[in-house]
Amino acid sequence: MSRAWLVTLATVVLLPVFVRHTIATEIWIFAIFGLGLNLLMGYTGLLSFGQATFFGAAAYAVGYLLKHYAINVVLALAIGVAVGAASAALVGYLCVQRSGLYFIMLTFALNQMFYFTAYQWTTVTGGEDGMPGVPRPEVLGLDIHAPLAYYTVVALLFVLALWIMRRIVESPLGKILQSIRDNELRAEALGYNVPRMKLVAFVLGGAFAGLAGVLYAMLFGIVPLEAIGFVFSGNVVFATLIGGSGSLYGPVIGSFVFIWLSESVSAIWARWPLLLGVAFVVVVLFLRGGVVEAWARYRAWRHASG
C-alpha cells in the first residue's frame, strides 16, 4: 500500500470525527462525482460542462424507483451507475465530434436541455420543488438511517471508486486517453479510434456521476432541481481544478476543500461566494495545478532547502 492510500484511508476513518457527518458524507459523494469528471477533464482533456446531466438523471431515475417501487440499495446503485453511463453515452456520442469551445458549449447546452426537461416534467421530478421523499432502505439487512452508518457506506463506496479509478488510469486505456489529451493527432496517427476512446471516457465518467447522484439522493432524501443544473456541473469542474486536475487525488482534495470551505464559511459570513471567487482567481493565477501542485512545490522547496 502506498503512502497516498494510507493517507486516504486514515482520512476516511478520521473525517467524521472532525467534520459533521452529513458534510463528511457529502465530501466523499462529491469526490466520486469529481473522479468521474477528472477522467474526462484531467486525463482525456475533455472539459465537460455538463456532468450534472448524468448525476441528475441517475438521481431522478433511481429516486423515482426507490419511491414508487421500493427497490433495494444494491439494485439502486447498479441502476444509478447504468443510467449515468447511458445518459453519458448519449451526450458523449453527440459531443465527441467537437472540440475546444464548441465542445464545452455543447455539453453546456445539452445540460440545459436536461435541466428544462426536469423543470417541466413536474409529475415525475416535482419541477422547481424537487423530488422529495426518497427513502434510504436497508443495505444487506443493516439499517443505514443513522448519519454515521450511511457515512460508512458512502466512504466504502468511495474507496472502491477510487481504487477502480486508479486501475482505469493505470490501464492501457488510461494511457491511451492521456495520449489523446497530450496530442490528439498523434494518438490518431498511432491508430487509435479517438472518438470511440473519448466516448468510453464519457461513459465511465458518467457511471461515476451516476453513482454519486444516487448516493446524493439517498443522503438528503430529495432530488433537488439544481442537482441537474449547470451550476452543479460548474461546481464539480471548479472543485476538481482547485484540487488539481489530471492527478488521481486532485478531485478528492478539491471536493474536500470546496465543500468543507463553502459549508463552514457560509455559516459564518453571508458573502462567502466572494471568497470562493478570490480562491478561484488565486488558483488560476498562482497555483495552476491546484492543491496537488502546491504540495509538490512545497516538497520541492523543502527538498531544495534541506
Binding site: L241, R271, P273, L276
Partner: peptide, 27 residues
C-alpha cells in the same frame, strides 16, 4: 487576469472568469 492565461487551456480561463463573476456579483 486574462493575459497570463492565453495558453492555459479553457478550464483555467473558465475558472478565472467564473471566479471574477462571483467577485463582481458579490461586490
Amino acid at each position: 487576469g486574462i493575459r497570463p492565461l492565453y495558453r492555459a487551456g479553457h478550464d483555467y480561463q473558465l475558472l478565472l472568469t467564473f471566479g471574477l463573476s462571483l467577485i463582481v456579483t458579490e461586490g
